[in-house]
Amino acid sequence: MKSVLNRPIVIHLPSSPSYLPVMRATLGKLCELVGFDRETAGAVVLSMDEALTNIIKHAYGGAEDGVIDIELAPVGEPEPEAVKISLRDYGPAVDPKKIKSRDLDDVRPGGLGVHIIKKCMDTVEYAPADGGGTLLTMVKKLNSQKGKDKV
């Protein structure tokens, strides 16, 4: 029987930075199995890491007792053509229009995560989640050239 990647991985992640390496390893392996080259997989992993970091810092204010619902889904039939990453937090609602990249000419620590995510991923959507919090959905296509050779 042929083994196929056609079902999502669902994880309820504690909002602790200690778990970030676990998620990077998981997504990195999934990207490899889906067929991403090493550079593109690195860009996808970095994007998820940046998004989780923002949730931990801003949605939960650094509190480690929150939960982040994560879904990592291969997309496409019969073979995966993309990977979709969904991250849902239960923090205070944020107006998606206010989540923006900042001016890179302003050299200062912080605020680079959203820029990196938008630079590396094909689709990035923030939306209010049902019942509160924010749902971030990111998609990376297998044949994407965006962010190629970056990471």
């Binding site: 550079e39 970095l46 050299v107 680079l112 820029h115 990196i116 050779d149 970056k150 990471v151």
Partner: peptide, 11 residues
């Protein structure tokens, strides 16, 4: 990989 992060952020 680290070089790429600097390039993406233009640092």
């Amino acid at each position: 990989r680290v070089q790429s992060v600097f390039e993406i952020t233009r640092l």
